[in-house]
C-alpha cells in the first residue's frame, strides 16, 4: 500500500470514515442491525459482504462498457446474486455453524443497497483497480462497524467477546442488547458518536 499514489489511498480511506457506508451513508442497515448480536456474526457477515462487493466491483467495472445502460440494474443484480449464492454455499459447506447463525441474512446480501449503490455510483464509472480499492475500503468500513457493533452488544448482552468470557460473574448481562432494540440503541449511539467526532475534527 505504501507505493500507491495518493488518490488511490484516498479512495480506500474514504470508506473507512468520511463516507463510511453505515455511519455516514446509512446503507446496508438491515444486516447491520440484524446479525450483530455477537462479534463473530458481525465479522462473518462483513467478510461475506466484502467478498461479494469486491467480486462484483471487478466484474461490473470490466463490463461497464458492455452492459447497455437500460438493462444495467438487471445485469448488476444477476452478477451480485451469483456471488452471493457462491458465498452462501461456501459458508454452508465449510463453516456450517456460522452459516446457521447468519440464517437468511447471507442470501439477503443481494438486496444490500451498499453493494448495488457502489456498483451504480462507482464501479460502473471507474477502472478495475480503482473499483477494487473502493470496494475494499467500503467493505472494511462495513466490517469495522459490524464488528464494533457486534462486540458492544455481545459484551453487554452476553458478557462474552468472540465467545470468550470477558466480564465476570458479577455482571448481569443486559438481555436487551442482544435483542433487536439493542441493535437500534447501539447503532444510534455509534452514529451520534461518529457525528460528534466529525464536528470536533472540523473545529480543530
Amino acid at each position: 500500500m505504501a507505493k500507491t499514489p495518493i488518490p488511490l489511498s484516498k479512495e480506500f480511506l474514504k470508506g473507512l470514515w468520511d463516507d463510511n457506508p453505515v455511519l455516514r451513508m446509512l446503507l446496508g442497515l438491515c444486516p447491520t442491525l440484524a446479525v450483530t448480536n455477537s462479534a463473530i456474526n458481525g465479522l462473518a457477515m462483513g467478510l461475506a459482504t466484502i467478498f461479494v462487493l469486491i467480486s462484483s466491483s471487478i466484474l461490473i467495472s470490466l463490463l461497464r462498457k458492455v452492459i447497455p445502460h437500460q438493462v444495467r440494474i438487471a445485469g448488476y443484480i444477476v452478477i451480485i446474486a451469483t456471488f452471493v449464492t457462491v458465498a452462501d454455499k461456501f459458508l454452508a459447506a465449510y463453516l456450517p455453524e456460522i452459516s446457521k447463525a447468519l440464517g437468511p441474512y447471507v442470501p439477503l446480501i443481494v438486496v444490500n443497497c451498499l453493494i448495488l449503490g457502489r456498483q451504480e455510483a462507482f464501479s460502473s464509472k471507474n477502472g478495475v483497480i480503482r473499483s477494487i480499492v473502493d470496494g475494499l475500503g467500503m467493505g472494511m468500513g462495513f466490517v469495522f462497524v459490524l464488528v464494533v457493533l457486534g462486540s458492544i452488544r455481545e459484551i453487554l448482552g452476553s458478557a462474552t467477546l468472540f465467545n470468550l468470557q470477558v466480564l465476570g460473574d458479577w455482571f448481569n448481562p443486559w438481555m436487551i442488547m442482544i435483542l433487536p432494540p439493542g441493535a437500534f440503541l447501539t447503532l444510534g449511539l455509534l452514529i451520534g458518536l461518529g457525528n460528534w467526532l466529525n464536528e470536533r475534527k472540523v473545529k480543530i
Binding site: 447497455p68 438487471a74 446474486a81
Partner: peptide
Amino acid sequence: MVIVLTVITALS
C-alpha cells in the same frame, strides 16, 4: 440488450 443479459445469466 438481449444478448448481453442472456450471456450474463447463462454464465451465472
